[in-house]
Design a protein around this nucleic acid. Structure first.
Length: 608
DNA sequence: ATAGGGTTAG
């Protein structure tokens, strides 16, 4: 027989006791013992066992026990019996004004997503004169943030202060989280900076807030101060909050370090961490390791599948991505909204226009997912990339919703690639109204003109930009070696080994010309001499970074670089040949995609 | 009895 204080896992203790032990021993359990058993029912969501326990607790007269009552409510709520929880609550609250009781019911509603009821109960509680405590506020803040109520969160915040709960760690953490998920990071940060004592949860919530806003540099900085300044050990939630930052910077070394930490701490079997790792490795251009992690999970879930599919697509392995999409369905997973965005985007980047359109048209009946803006945006992109610019424009007109800026932007980009001035102008002028301060739109329109040699219009657009005081984002590429990131701008000569770098480029130029390279000067969108154009092309930032990589990265290792804009068409050709003449694997990350160059070919199949 | 997690177009 297993005893109560056995070191075995609680569910084992519970199952062996709740059924036979008490009766066979012929004695009642203490409230403490009931507490342990109830907890195990909560953990394993065992409603039937919990009900049996409940009736025995009632018989033994422990139902009003301050330890057991909240647990009973929690048991019913985690088992999806929120109404039973409320019945019990109603029965008990007639004579009970204990904050424990009220808070547990409020939290049950908060977890359950019953926003209105949660706050109704809170009001009733205040009317009854029950003073809320830190637990009450944590529950309420969770509900308020989840429903995106900023006003309410602010009111709760001021109540927290008035009730003297402002100094409580868990309440402060809840507030940081709430502000973070409401995307008011500065409020979260203000609070965070004022905290006297911070624990892992505070740091994790703050890192998460930064990551969800895309302030990844802040996430990174916080992560190191947490360890160096506060000497705190990251936990699973910290890791999950940090991994997107590693992926964003394509910082394979940092990502690998986090992965090693995950393994050292036994977090590998955590599905959420697994999905975050798959995404991180995919964004660092290493889909093979991502796939290894993916396969290491025997029990997968939809998010893991979706992450892996996206990972392959991101790295140009479109066929594998689509196969995985089929395999996922064979294994009984129905794609959701996000999966369909991912798969449509894959079709768009792969040039699988017809397949993509078919998925789009049948997604509602087949998967019960109603197409949203993101899906429509993928279709516009798909048609645009495929050169079906008129179809794309018609699609925008007839889709029955206001086009988003990004939709018009992707069609404008397609007009640059396919040299369509007419549609390009229409898109650009709509965009100028929609997002007047976005310099990128002006730049693309001027590129559209430049691509067809309308230099007068190029100048006109440039004048518009100057008049509005808009500056073009300048292109740069970077490469990470050891723990340092080296950034190169176009025609950059600031690096201390600049001379060597340009020497490598010169030698390479000769070699790739021998291998058949012809500089595609149409990619120089400036009105300058032909020879000047050739020179300008050679020192694009991506080539500088690659040359530096050739000098520094051991020959057996791939050279990974990242560029903040799209790789230009000429560099793409050149890099293909560089991979051939040097027999190196070159991995270039674009704004959002990867190009894997090897033996003169690129994974994108020249369609991007 | 409480807070915190992964996948989303260009």
């Amino acid at each position: 027989m297993v005893s109560i204080c056995s070191p075995l896992p609680p569910n084992l203790v519970a199952s062996s006791i709740s059924v036979e032990a008490p009766r066979s021993r012929g004695r009642s359990l203490t409230s403490r013992e009931y507490g342990v058993l109830l907890q195990s029912c909560i953990d394993s969501k065992s409603l039937e066992r919990g009900k049996m326990l409940h009736s025995r607790i009632r018989k033994d007269g422990f139902e009003r026990n301050r330890d057991l009552l909240p647990r009973l409510i929690k048991l019913y709520s985690v088992c999806g019996r929120i109404d039973d929880a409320k019945k019990l609550f109603d029965r008990m609250s007639k004579r009970n004004s204990d904050v424990f009781l009220w808070t547990s019911m409020i939290c049950a509603y908060a977890k359950n997503g019953s926003m209105m009821r949660c706050f109704e109960l809170f009001v009733q509680m205040l009317e009854r004169g029950v003073r809320p405590d830190s637990y009450t506020f944590s529950g309420l803040l969770k509900a308020s943030a989840e429903f995106g109520f900023l006003e309410l969160t602010l009111q709760l915040h001021s109540m927290v202060v008035r009730c003297g709960c402002g100094g409580c760690l868990s309440v402060a953490n809840s507030l940081i989280h709430a502000y973070g998920s409401l995307r008011v990071v500065h409020e979260a940060r203000k609070l965070f900076d004022r905290m006297v004592v911070r624990d892992v949860a505070s740091w994790s919530a703050m890192i998460q807030a930064c990551s969800s806003m895309g302030s990844y540099a802040d996430s990174m900085a916080l992560f190191s101060s947490m360890q160096l300044g506060d000497c705190l050990k990251p936990n699973e939630l910290t890791v999950v909050a940090l991994l997107p930052a590693c992926g964003f910077f394509s910082s394979l070394r940092k990502g690998q370090a986090v992965h090693a930490y995950v393994i050292r701490n036994g977090y590998e079997s955590n599905l959420i961490i697994g999905s975050a790792l798959v995404t991180m490795y995919s964004r660092c251009g290493d889909p093979d390791v991502a796939y290894m992690i993916f396969t290491s999970f025997y029990q997968k879930n939809l998010v893991l599948w979706t992450s892996m599919i996206e990972g392959f697509a991101l790295n140009g392995k479109y066929d594998i991505a689509l196969n995985l999409f089929k395999k996922m369905q064979d294994q009984g997973f129905q794609p959701n909204y996000v999966t369909l965005v991912v798969i449509l985007s894959a079709c768009s980047h792969a040039g699988f226009v017809d397949e993509g359109l078919q998925i789009f048209e049948t997604m509602q009946e087949k998967f019960g997912v109603k197409a949203g803006v993101e899906h429509y945006a993928c279709v516009v992109d798909m048609l645009g990339r495929g050169g079906r610019l008129e179809d794309a424009e018609k699609f925008i007109e007839n889709m029955g919703m206001r086009p988003s800026g990004s939709m018009l932007g992707s069609l404008l980009g397609a007009c640059q690639v396919h040299h369509n001035v007419e549609i390009g102008e229409r898109m650009a002028y709509r965009l100028f109204e929609l997002e007047p301060r976005n310099a990128a739109n002006y730049v693309i329109l001027s590129n559209v003109y430049a691509a067809v040699g309308q230099w007068h219009d190029v100048g006109r657009v440039r004048q518009m930009m100057i008049a509005k005081g808009l500056l073009k984002d300048s292109g740069c590429s970077w490469i990470e070696l050891k723990d340092t990131v080296y950034v190169f701008g176009a025609h950059d000569r600031s690096h201390w080994e600049s001379e060597k770098i340009y020497k490598v480029l010169e030698e390479l130029s000769e070699e790739i010309v021998r291998a058949g390279y012809v500089p595609a000067t149409e990619h120089v969108l400036l009105d300058v001499e032909e020879n000047e154009k050739k020179k300008l092309l050679c020192s694009h930032s991506e080539r500088l970074a690659i040359a530096f990589g050739l000098l520094k990265v051991p020959p057996e290792m791939p050279i990974r670089i990242v560029k903040n804009l799209r790789v230009c068409g000429d560099c793409h050709e050149a890099i293909k040949l560089i991979s051939r003449v040097t027999s190196r694997k070159l991995v270039v990350r674009d704004t959002n995609r990867f190009h894997h160059f090897y033996r003169g070919c690129c994974s994108c199949g020249d369609y991007w």
